[in-house]
């Protein structure tokens, strides 16, 4: 091929590329607003669909430093409004505790030499960390969260179980130095295995997304004996939740739409609107159990 043909060919190729690029930039310029709109919505949807990763990164959640300190200032003002009821509750708890001490001392005296073996095992398996304050809560969304004022510095870690004296509250999902976020039962992402205390039948607790005082217990088989007023407790089959933590009472019994299972409405023991002082529990052997179970699969 001789040189002039090659130059001519090169010239036409460069013209073609230039025109294509120009058309491309015209297109971008013409639809700039719409493209910008798509980019912004893309960012939002990416955040939305990576919900779990997002929860883990404490930068974006309310346990990050700025958000948490704003909430803790606001809480330090609003907590004065609840002091009266809080005092009443504390003094009630004091009475209950001192009664319990008496009772336990009597028991201890009677069985000093043969301490119940179960008690020893339980103490060995679970840590209880006391005293955390809930400084922020939402109860009127589908995905509700609580924020508490204790974090990594106080030994709080992911997947710790949160309770107060009335029952189970939820699980820790994100921690920062001084704060943690709690996923309560009243969140549509929450799943919790439970059993009916009297008959021992197992089921799953999910939220009904209507009232923050109620949840639904699913997957209880048809032949189970169920009655309104029965207590529902954690089943202990999850590696994180200890057994026999109180969840609530059955308030309504109906059959599942597909048949074969009950759909039980539970009145939750915890009032998420007023929950304030909470305790954190960690299963020391959860990791060991998980590793073993995953190895089996």
């Amino acid at each position: 091929m001789h040189l002039p043909t090659l130059f001519a060919f090169g010239y036409y190729v460069s013209l073609f590329i230039r025109n294509t690029l120009r058309n491309f930039f015209y297109f971008i310029a013409k639809h700039a607003t719409f493209i910008y709109f798509l980019i912004l919505e893309g960012i939002c949807l990416a955040l939305l669909f990576n919900f779990n990763d997002y929860q883990r990164s404490s930068f974006f959640s309310s346990s990050n430093r700025v958000c948490a300190s704003v909430y803790s200032i606001s809480n330090s003002i609003t907590q004065y409004f609840g002091l009266r009821t809080e005092n009443l509750r504390l003094s009630e708890e004091n009475i209950k505790l001192s009664n319990k001490i008496d009772q336990l001392q009597q028991q201890l005296a009677s069985i000093t030499d043969t301490l119940s073996r179960k008690l020893v095992i339980d103490n060995d398996r679970y840590f209880v960390y006391t005293s955390g304050n809930v400084i922020n809560r939402t109860i009127n969304r589908s995905r509700n969260f609580l924020t508490a004022d204790v974090g990594k510095k106080s030994g709080i870690s992911d997947n710790m179980i949160v309770v107060d004296e009335s029952g189970v509250i939820g699980m820790v999902t994100a921690t920062s130095e001084h704060f943690c976020t709690i996923l309560p039962i009243i969140n549509n992402a929450s799943r919790l295995s439970a059993k009916i205390k009297k008959s021992g039948f197992h089921g799953q607790i999910v939220w009904n997304e209507v009232s923050y005082r109620q949840a639904i217990m699913e997957d209880v088989p048809e032949h189970a004996s169920v009655a309104v007023g029965d207590s529902v407790v954690t089943s202990g089959s999850s590696s994180y939740y200890p057994e026999n933590l109180y969840i609530g009472k059955i308030s309504e019994v109906e059959m599942d739409r597909n048949g074969g299972f009950y759909r039980l409405t539970i009145d939750l023991a915890v009032d998420y609107n007023s929950v304030s002082q909470v305790k954190f529990i960690r299963n020391k052997r959860a990791d060991e159990q998980r590793a073993l179970e995953e190895g089996q699969q």
């Binding site: 912004l40 919505e41 960012i43 939002c44 949807l45 990416a46 955040l47 990576n50 974006f60 958000c67």
Partner: peptide
């Protein structure tokens, strides 16, 4: 608002729309 409410992208998405 999202950062304070633990709702990833929901409020931002609807505000952009």
């Amino acid at each position: 608002i999202d950062m304070f409410c633990d709702t990833p992208g929901m409020h931002a998405g609807s505000m952009v729309l």
